[in-house]
């Protein structure tokens, strides 16, 4: 329950901080922290426009996409407190339920018959395919390290004792951050603010969505960021008491948003065909973590 509330709270300001960081870095004042939320509320109040090519798939896809992200959020724990859904192997469910959302966002884009949206859909499918193995290896190594197979138990027993485990935690945080970048289609893989449809990934997929549907898609994006932020925080929270953990959680989330904002301000987007290589690096880093976990657990012979 705690994680649920905290993630929603973090989601409320996460994207705002990114935008603010970017505008300050580029010398502008920028909108308020809660502008993204206001945008979404405005969208929820609007009517909607459908493409004449589209079918029922296009109409239900955003809802299912949002629901999948929302249910994935329920799985994520906060320190010692479980998520609303928690069982052995819940991280498998987490990854696959996000996959369901991705499936629908892809076919939703294909439903409009637009070449641009097809392009975005194809890229999204390709990148998510690469990101998935990394996630599973990472969770596998954490399971090996802790001897548990559910998010909450893994994070609760992940004692960062020796220096090598700190290194592992750092690497794992890096992997999660990179996965978050891929999942949310941010720089350096995708530029959400680019003005050319040809170079977009996620943004081009939702070109034809409007009103309530677009609001759901945007909200799901905000939630996704906060979800990965929460997972990264969980890597280090361990047994810290709530009194410290909750403020720390918010600070970590704000810091992550700041980091994302800085990356987006000072880095150019990769060329599309470099993205695949970047994502393969992810799998290699997670393999590295796996071997680290082997070392720590004394099974490396």
């Amino acid at each position: 329950m705690l994680s649920f509330l905290l993630i929603i709270l973090a989601a409320a300001f996460f994207t705002g901080i990114i935008i603010r960081t970017k505008s300050i870095a580029s010398g502008r004042k920028g909108p308020g922290l809660f502008q993204p939320i206001k945008d979404v509320i405005r969208l929820f109040k609007k009517g909607t426009v459908y493409s004449e090519t589209s079918s029922f798939v296009f109409r239900i896809a955003p809802t299912i996409y949002f629901s999948s992200v929302f249910v994935a959020m329920l799985v994520v724990p906060f320190g010692q407190s479980k998520g609303l859904i928690s069982f052995n192997g819940d991280f498998i469910f987490f990854a696959y339920v996000l996959g369901l959302g991705k499936f629908f966002s892809i076919i939703g884009a294909m439903d409009t018959g637009s070449s641009f949206e097809g392009m975005g859909a194809s890229r999204e499918a390709l990148y998510s395919m690469f990101a998935e193995p990394a996630f599973f290896i990472l969770m596998g190594s954490l399971a090996l390290l802790t001897g548990h197979t559910s998010f909450q138990e893994i994070f609760a027993t992940l004692h960062l004792g020796s220096s090598i485990t700190y290194a592992l935690g750092g690497l794992a945080a890096l992997v999660f951050l990179m996965i978050a970048m891929i999942e949310n289609s941010r720089m350096p893989l995708d530029d959400p603010k680019t003005h050319l449809e040809l170079t977009m990934v996620h943004e081009v997929m939702i070109l034809d969505n409007s009103g309530f549907d677009l609001g759901l898609i945007l909200t799901a994006g905000y939630l996704k960021f906060a979800i990965y932020g929460a997972i990264i925080f969980n890597l280090f929270s361990g047994t810290i008491s709530y009194g410290y953990a909750i403020p720390m959680f918010l600070v970590v989330q704000a810091f992550l948003a700041f980091v994302v904002g800085m990356i987006e301000s000072f880095m150019a987007r990769f060329r599309m065909n470099h993205n695949a290589q970047f994502i393969v690096v992810l799998s290699s880093v997670s393999l590295l973590i796996f071997f680290g976990a082997l070392l720590v657990s004394g099974k490396f012979i």
Partner: peptide
């Protein structure tokens, strides 16, 4: 690790394959 990687990879590829099949055969114009 290789099996887990393989299974996850198979899952991702299957997703790509069936979004393609469904998207191209049934959706669009």
């Amino acid at each position: 690790v290789f099996i887990v990687m393989g299974l996850a990879f198979i899952g991702g590829l299957a997703l790509m394959c069936f979004t393609k099949a469904f998207g191209v055969v049934f959706l669009g114009n």
